[in-house]
């Protein structure tokens, strides 16, 4: 594994929106690298432009300046090797398609032959524990299950990078814990690189191998923190570790500083 060449490389990315009272600088300047196989969480105070950053990464929104490189190629349109999971599961699944067809559609668009497609769909849906729901419609499922379908769709797509935008912000706490473990499992099983955006500090520390703390708008990377928790995470034991508490306290402190505007760009 070429550990030194980043898979995703963000360089001095900035985004300015035209506003009624002059331009609004949503993202100041963001630079970071993600290496193959990493699970990186991005946290920041609310309104810090996490979603804007994500849309720029995904090629859905052109940045004002700076660049995003995926696998050595500049991202200017949605890249082939990236799959997205959105926060609004209810609005990111096609309500007129069954679970099976929702997961299959991106594969169909890519020209995967039918038999192969159906097999991939069944594998992915099984991976997220919804094999019994293949022929139901998304709106017949609970919120947590709908988000599992969205994850299955991303998994079946076999991306190199899986980008998740606050995917569990709208599900209840117990479902959320299950889904967090699902993300860890998918990440390990498939060896995919995951970029996980969240506003939940505990979630970022629990999930991530690395946490990027963003400042408030105009956004920069305030800190790039390696999470030195054991690789085997468990909702009970990991969250009870003293080191977990230390890390979450540290991140919490950083976010509070970011909110007060004491932005100190990361030195690393």
């Amino acid at each position: 594994m070429a550990e030194n060449t980043p898979l995703l490389s963000v360089r001095e990315l900035s985004k300015t929106y035209p506003g009624a009272n002059g331009p609004v600088e949503a993202i100041g300047s963001i630079s970071f690298d993600v290496h193959p196989g990493e699970l990186v969480c991005i946290v920041g105070p609310s309104g810090c432009g996490k979603t804007t950053l994500l849309k720029c990464l995904a090629g859905l929104l052109p940045p004002t300046s700076g660049s995003v490189m995926l696998d050595g190629a500049e991202v200017s349109a949605p890249p082939k090797k990236m799959a997205l999971v959105f926060q609004e599961y209810g609005r990111s699944l096609y309500p007129w398609l069954t679970v099976r067809d929702n997961v299959a559609l991106p594969l169909k668009a890519r020209g995967v032959p039918r038999a192969e497609r159906l097999a991939a769909v069944e594998r992915a849906v099984e991976e997220v524990g919804l094999a019994h729901a293949l022929d139901t419609y998304p709106w017949q499922l609970s919120g947590g299950m709908q988000q599992r379908v969205a994850i299955a769709r991303a998994v079946a797509y076999q991306p190199e990078v899986l980008v998740m935008d606050e995917p569990f912000a709208a599900v209840d706490a117990q479902t959320r814990a299950d889904l967090e473990d699902l993300v860890r499992r998918v990440w390990k099983d498939l060896g995919v690189t995951v970029l996980f955006v969240t506003h939940d500090i505990d979630e970022s520390v629990y999930l991530g191998g690395r946490v990027l703390v963003l400042s408030s708008s105009p956004t920069v990377v305030q800190e790039d923190l390696a999470i030195d928790l054991p690789a085997e995470r468990d909702q009970l034991t990991t969250r009870a570790l003293p080191r977990f508490t230390e890390l979450r306290t540290h991140v919490y402190g950083q976010i509070q500083r970011a909110k007060r505007g004491e932005a100190v760009p990361a030195v690393r």
Binding site: P78, K80, A83, R91, S92, L105
Partner: peptide
């Protein structure tokens, strides 16, 4: 059309006739 669903279709590169049949029309 829901912008989230539009972004979904774009990011999964569901385009052209397929997008018309499975996204825009429904």
């Amino acid at each position: 059309m829901d912008p989230v669903l539009t972004d979904t279709s774009r990011s999964y590169r569901v385009r052209g006739a397929l997008a018309y049949r499975y996204f825009v029309l429904p």
